[in-house]
């Protein structure tokens, strides 16, 4: 196991280097002037430039040098987190990403429990009641959730919760709450408005922030349940057919313990990977859900960047996502080993 993790750690830089190269490679489809925007540090540098000056800037940043030289120049900047200037956000790309991160983190923290736990719970119920009406109902529920595109279901949720009921608005805070949060008396400890609201004693703000999370959480829960439920169900069914389950029953272990002690622990090992991927997905921001609910996280930022053709921003976010995913997968694999003694001790 240690050898395996060591191997993964050794490969890690190779993968990350490959990731940057792939992004750089994609950049090459842009013409040098478009690419220039990924290098510029502030809009001042672009102001009052004529066509000649653009050429000069291209020269200055070495955009007509050989590809490999350009790549290593660019890589040096990326490694210093210098990702250029974002027109859309009116700030450096790095700051744009970092400033949206608390919003995404807050949504992730509140969504992870209903998404993962709910899906696993449904999957186990479904497997235990195999082919009975309850299982059929859950499976129909799942196949519908699996087939609904997020942008269809998200809009439907927004329509019902906001359009019809008028209860759960889009955005992250209501205007009045936003004013409180931006006022100097309100201290931002964590950047998570629910937590900060409580810490500042402004429970109304915390409640308002929570209210805005309901729509995205419902959307994510239903759509991702379908996924995690299916995997839990099939894994659970497979495990329930194993000889050690027959053995547990033959020992006289009560059915409840057979399922929750003997079957569940084995069945959830493969589910862990999927759950881990979901947590990573949440941490990276969910592009479509955030866009629909106008939730100012990294996902919506990415969508805006793509719509407005803000290349430095979209490339920067892509690198951020890839790094998050690569490092996160490593963490998941280590966790895997903690849960499964077969992996741990090999």
């Amino acid at each position: 196991m240690t050898a395996y993790i060591l191997r993964r750690l050794l490969i890690l830089p190779v993968i990350l280097l490959g990731v940057t190269f792939l992004v750089f490679f994609m950049m090459q489809f842009l013409d040098p002037v478009q690419r220039l925007s990924a290098y510029i540090k502030s809009p001042a540098e672009l102001k009052s430039l004529s066509a000649d000056d653009l050429e000069k800037l291209v020269d200055k940043y070495g955009l007509n040098k050989p590809l490999l030289v350009q790549y290593f120049d660019w890589l040096k900047r990326v490694l210093r987190f210098d990702l250029g200037w974002s027109e859309v956000a009116h700030q450096p790309v790095r700051d744009a990403i970092l400033s949206r991160f608390p919003a995404t983190l807050e949504l992730a923290l509140f969504a992870v429990f209903p998404v993962v736990w709910g899906g696993i719970w449904l999957g186990i119920i479904s497997a235990v009641n195999r082919d009975k009406p309850l299982d059929q109902a859950i499976r129909i529920f799942a196949v519908i959730g699996w087939s609904l595109p997020s942008f269809v279901f998200g809009i439907l949720v927004l329509f019902l919760l906001y359009g019809v009921l008028g209860l759960f608005p889009p955005g992250r805070l209501s205007l009045w709450a936003q004013n409180i949060v931006s006022s100097p008396d309100f201290k931002l400890y964590t950047g998570l408005y629910v937590v900060d609201g409580i810490l500042n004693g402004r429970f109304d703000v915390a409640l308002d922030a929570l209210r805005h999370l309901v729509g995205p959480i419902i959307t994510l829960s239903y759509l991702w349940w379908a996924f995690i439920l299916r995997i839990t169900r099939s894994s659970m069914l497979e495990v329930l057919h194993k000889e050690y389950i027959v053995m547990a029953r033959a020992k006289g272990v009560p059915e409840k313990l057979v399922i929750h002690r003997h079957a569940k622990k084995n069945a959830l090992i493969p589910v862990l990977t999927v759950a881990g991927m979901m947590v990573l997905g949440l941490l990276g921001g969910v592009v479509i859900t955030e866009t629909i609910f106008d939730y100012p996280g990294i996902g919506r930022l990415a969508a805006t960047a793509a719509q407005q053709l803000d290349y430095p921003l979209i490339l920067g976010i892509t690198i951020f996502y890839a790094f998050l995913l690569v490092l996160g997968n490593l963490v998941i694999d280590v966790l895997y080993a903690v849960v499964d003694p077969r992996v741990r001790l090999e």
Partner: peptide
């Protein structure tokens, strides 16, 4: 069910062919 469960493992026990797959790998 409950009476039968009480008999299994206490009055009637069973051992199986493949001890590898019959013992729970995570305990």
């Amino acid at each position: 069910y409950e009476e039968m469960r009480d008999i299994r493992g206490r009055k009637i026990s069973m051992i199986f062919q493949e001890p590898m797959v019959v013992l729970n790998p995570v305990y």
